[in-house]
Design a protein around this nucleic acid. Structure first.
Length: 677
DNA sequence: GCGAGATTAAACATAA
DNA sequence: TTTATGTTTAATCTCG
């Protein structure tokens, strides 16, 4: 099985231990006696090395050798009782230099070996041939190492003799010879490495991530480290036999491959299933790139504006030729270039990952919005102009928990007229500037339990600032309570329960709640047995903005009536808005003034209609409701005036608030506030 | 530009 | 003393 490839040796050890002993015998021979022999053996070794390399299965063969070693160990355990298995394991390594030991496949674990072997598709005969070749090569390496070691010893010995004044010329000759021999070793290693790369490129060798990158490790620092070879494998895994079968892979190939492989999606890094069939890569290949270069002689991904675009390079290249020259010289296949390529790959992969996530998010958003927008506009909530009495009533009737919204699809605050745009705006507005705006009081739609109920899930889950004033929310909270009264803490709880937004920045909004409770006369503090509770004085609440009601208190009484006017108006407005839902979405989200103009126009129209229809109620509560749909345009954050019409708070508001929430009032980082919570 | 309303922040007081 | 609650003032913003 094992055959010593030493030219002068006819020994054919059948066991590794014998082989090593045999080799040791060769190396133990005084160098002075074997000098001519060395040359001839070196020649023979080189010849055989080249022959072995030409087979292009070096790595695989090395693995086979390792496997044989493992098998042999088992045999030794069974047959030979002279040496313990443990000792046998170590013996080869003891007889060869450490560097050689690292070169051998012995560093591969049996499991890894098994995995590798399972991946091979060669026939047993081929394996046998490859194995023999590999064995020969491995022995050559070992012998070379032995010689190297021996000559080192000899050199040291002769150095000592030189100090004693003996044969300086001979010493010099030996040193020179040894140096040359060392260089040959290096060349051999490089050949092996190149051959390995070639195998990898051709797909003959596949190394899984869990496997050691290579069975052979470089002897010198100039060799490509394992990591780089792994990178090389990654980069070239998409390439097939289309690639050159030679050992010469220009640095340009590598660089272009790296870049091109990085650019496409992650799947491009995997072997292209079609590549092996026609030899043409569907993804970026050097060949294709070269074609593109032919078509565009001065077009190169790494070259632009007279500058090398290699990451971190930016070297100025006057023309394309100089760039190519620079590319070949400065970005050749070396550690640095490969490492940079690896970094670039990681960057690209990271970006691809991010892109995939964002795409997924976008898809979900689009899907969600599409569903919403296509939902039948059935059972529109009673809108606007509902009097406070009505509101309180509805509040008690429609408790938040009674909403039919599914948890998985939280309903965004949606008014029939603003469904699409509003929702989207809510999300997209996060990127809008910190403009803080309020809804026009005139067109504000007061909060209603139906509104909150309708959008309950949305506000519960989305940290979107609700488009209601604190006063409205406080009032709503109180009115929703069975006894129409709440303690401050209960009001707090209602806020946090109903709105995700109020689950943080507690200090801020709690202070605002207290402030509003004290500020507005409509909130009456009542001493209770348990302590102080807060109630709502509806009359005072409606009086809050007398001037808005055109100074006519009687309008308050007409709120209910006004609702009748607003309903059809609302429908018309909603229809109008619905037609523009998409444009609204985009414009609103993008901060495009077009939306504002459109909304203003609608608002103006509505306003005129309102005045025309009901000159009396003008604004009392007015018709704000309809405009709600318009509000998004204003992008305000605020306040639906409670006293005024009732209307779905909707998205409109939501959208408007987002900006504020994100930019204007983001106290998330306020430690004090957080502490309060 | 002005006034009104709303929001936010802060100081202060009081009670538990 | 700490915390919660309540009051008040001031600054700022947005809108009409």
């Amino acid at each position: 099985m094992f055959q010593c490839v030493f030219s002068s040796s006819v020994l054919q050890p059948h066991r590794t231990s014998c082989l090593f002993k045999h080799l040791f015998y060769h190396s133990a021979t005084p160098a002075s006696q074997k000098q001519p022999e060395i040359d001839s053996k070196k020649t023979e070794i080189q010849r055989q090395t080249v022959r072995a390399l030409s087979v292009k299965v070096f790595i695989f063969s090395a693995l086979q050798v390792a496997r044989q070693l493992l098998l042999q160990q088992q045999q030794q355990q069974q047959v030979s009782g002279l040496k313990s298995p443990k000792r046998n394991d170590k013996q080869p390594a003891l007889q060869v230099p450490v560097s050689v030991a690292m070169m051998t496949p012995q560093v591969i674990t049996p499991q890894q070996m098994q995995q590798i072997l399972q991946q091979q598709v060669l026939s047993p005969q081929q394996l046998q041939v490859l194995l023999q070749q590999q064995q020969a090569l491995m022995l050559q390496q070992q012998q070379l190492q032995e010689f190297y070691k021996k000559q080192q010893e000899q050199l040291q010995l002769q150095l000592l003799q030189q100090h004693a004044g003996k044969q300086p010329k001979e010493q010099q000759q030996v040193a020179t010879q040894q140096l040359a021999f060392q260089q040959q070793l290096l060349q051999m290693q490089q050949l092996q490495q190149q051959h390995l790369l070639s195998l990898q490129r051709q797909g003959l060798l596949t190394i899984q991530p869990g496997q050691p990158a290579l069975p052979l490790q470089p002897l010198t620092q100039g060799m490509i480290p394992t990591e780089l070879q792994q990178l090389w494998k990654e980069v070239t895994s998409a390439h097939t036999t289309e690639e050159t079968t030679g050992n010469n892979h220009s640095s340009l190939d590598l660089t272009t491959t790296c870049v091109s492989s990085s650019a496409p999606s992650k799947t491009s890094l995997i072997m292209n299933p079609h590549a092996s069939t026609n030899g043409q890569l569907s993804v970026h290949t050097p060949k294709r790139e070269s074609l593109s270069h032919e078509e565009h002689p001065h077009s190169h991904p790494l070259y632009g504006h007279g500058v090398c675009k290699w990451p971190g390079c930016e070297a100025v290249c006057e023309d394309f030729q100089s760039f190519l020259k620079h590319l070949n010289s400065e970005h050749a296949l070396d550690d640095r270039s490969t490492a940079q390529c690896r970094v670039q790959m990681q960057v690209v992969q990271q970006l691809e990952l991010q892109l995939a996530k964002d795409k997924e998010r976008l898809q979900a958003m689009m899907t969600h919005l599409h569903v919403k927008s296509t939902e039948p506009k059935t059972a529109p909530q009673p809108l606007n102009l509902v009097s406070s009495v009505t509101l309180s009533k509805s509040a008690s009737e429609a408790s938040p928990q009674s909403l039919p919204h599914t948890p998985t699809t939280p309903t965004a605050p949606i008014t029939p007229a603003t469904q699409g745009p509003s929702v989207i705006t809510t999300t997209s507005m996060h990127t809008v500037g910190p403009i803080r705006r309020r809804y026009s009081d005139k067109y504000n739609v007061p909060i209603s339990s139906a509104d909150i109920a309708q959008n309950q899930e949305f506000y519960k889950n989305a940290e979107v600032r609700p488009p209601f004033t604190y006063a409205s929310l406080i009032r709503q909270a109180i009115l929703e309570s069975p006894e129409k009264q709440l303690t401050l803490n209960e009001i707090y709880n209602w806020f946090t329960r109903m709105f995700a937004y109020f689950r943080r920045n507690a200090a801020t909004w709690k202070n605002a709640v207290r402030h509003n409770l004290s500020l507005h006369k409509c909130f009456v503090r009542v001493e209770n047995v348990k302590g102080a509770v807060w109630t709502v004085d509806e009359v005072e609440f409606q009086k809050r903005r007398p001037q808005k009601i055109s100074g006519n208190p009687s309008l308050i009484k007409n709120m209910q009536t006004s609702h009748a006017y607003c309903t059809p108006l609302n429908a018309a407005l909603q229809a109008s808005m619905a037609e523009n839902s998409i444009p609204l979405y985009t414009t609103a989200s993008m901060g495009n003034p077009t939306l504002g103009n459109l909304a203003s126009a609608i608002r103006e129209e509505l306003n005129g209609a309102m005045e025309h229809t009901n000159s009396n109620e003008s604004d009392s509560s007015p018709g704000r409701s309809p405009l709600q749909a318009v509000h998004p345009v204003h992008v305000k954050e605020e306040p639906l005036d409670p006293e005024e019409a009732e209307g779905p708070l909707s998205l409109v508001t939501t959208a408007n608030h987002s900006p504020d929430f994100d930019h204007d009032r983001d106290y998330e980082d306020e430690p004090v506030n957080e502490d309060m919570e």
